[in-house]
């Protein structure tokens, strides 16, 4: 008996105990790694499906940021005459719109992901955490494409990047963390309370004007700067603009405060998601 046991594939690694789950759970990294192929194909599906049966294909990734940039340049730049830090208007706005477009797209898609994915996760088990994270990853492609245009514009306006450019990956990482954290919070809330879904749609507008997308963070009074920095996109978008266009020192105060709140948003989002995931199927 013992011999036949050892002759077979070892089973102990695959022992699953199904009991009522209670309390808070950490992210199960090992399980996420085990299912990494699925993550890859889910992201691939998102990316492939997005621009299928369109005429312009991936050019659509540029439409949103380019048109926002044009509108802002005309309304806020030409008519409103808001300060653009002395930079060419179109470059200034595009550098703000670029990270914002990613954030908005990724967060909205992530917030809706559970509702639209209910038909999958109610039929088969896989780490539920993938569902809100897939849009966060797949929207990076659009972000990358839109970034290429940024480079083209810099060449056109002959703007030489400063050494601060090396901090760009850090800012993008913070951007991803914030979007993922918000996505986990909002998707878990909206599967249970559909109110959230509708609230997200218009709150996104408010969040954009709260971020230094169409204006510059230097206009925030000094004494409110650190409080303003709690909003992670303040440091991220302002830092993004400085890292690319230069012209003034990196806003490290905003970035420092913002990184703390980005990490807090991400961790609390992950915990909240993991805590509520056991009822997703029952309330979906």
């Amino acid at each position: 008996m013992a011999n036949s046991d050892t002759a077979q594939t070892p089973l102990s690694e695959h022992c699953i105990v199904i009991v009522p789950t209670k309390g808070w759970k950490l992210i199960a990294w090992q399980e996420l790694i085990e299912y990494r192929d699925l993550l890859y194909f889910l992201v691939l599906r998102d990316v492939t499906v997005l621009y299928k049966q369109t005429i312009f294909g991936f050019a659509w990734a540029l439409m949103n940021p380019v048109f926002s940039m044009l509108v802002f340049t005309v309304i806020f730049g030409a008519l409103g005459k808001l300060s653009t830090d002395g930079q060419p208007k179109s470059v200034f706005y595009y550098a703000g719109v670029l990270p914002w477009t990613y954030f908005q797209g990724a967060m909205s898609a992530s917030a809706n992901s559970l509702i639209s994915g209910a038909n999958i996760f109610s039929k088969v088990y896989f780490p539920r955490l993938f569902i809100p994270l897939v849009p966060i990853i797949s929207k990076l492609l659009d972000f990358g494409i839109a970034f290429l245009l940024m480079i083209v514009m810099m060449v056109w306006y002959r703007i030489m990047p400063t050494t601060n450019l090396v901090f760009l990956p850090l800012l993008v990482l913070l951007l991803i963390l914030t979007a993922a954290g918000m996505g986990m919070w909002l998707s878990a809330l909206s599967i249970q309370y559909r109110d959230v879904r509708y609230a997200v749609a218009f709150c996104v507008q408010l969040l954009m004007y709260a971020a230094p997308v169409v204006w510059t963070a230097t206009s925030v009074p000094e004494k409110y700067r650190l409080i303003y920095g709690i909003y992670p996109l303040a440091g991220i978008i302002d830092g993004f603009r400085v890292a690319i266009l230069g012209g003034r020192p990196m806003p490290w105060d905003l970035i420092a405060v913002g990184s703390v709140s980005a990490v807090v948003i991400f961790l609390t989002g992950a915990f909240y998601y993991r805590r509520t995931e056991r009822i997703f199927v029952d309330v979906a």
Partner: peptide
């Protein structure tokens, strides 16, 4: 048994890889 929904009580222990085909 396929871990899609959580039990309210009791337990199930599964030894091995599970493939579930509910659809």
């Amino acid at each position: 048994l396929s871990r899609i929904t959580d039990p309210t009580r009791g337990s199930a222990t599964i030894y091995g890889r599970v493939g579930s085909l509910l659809e």
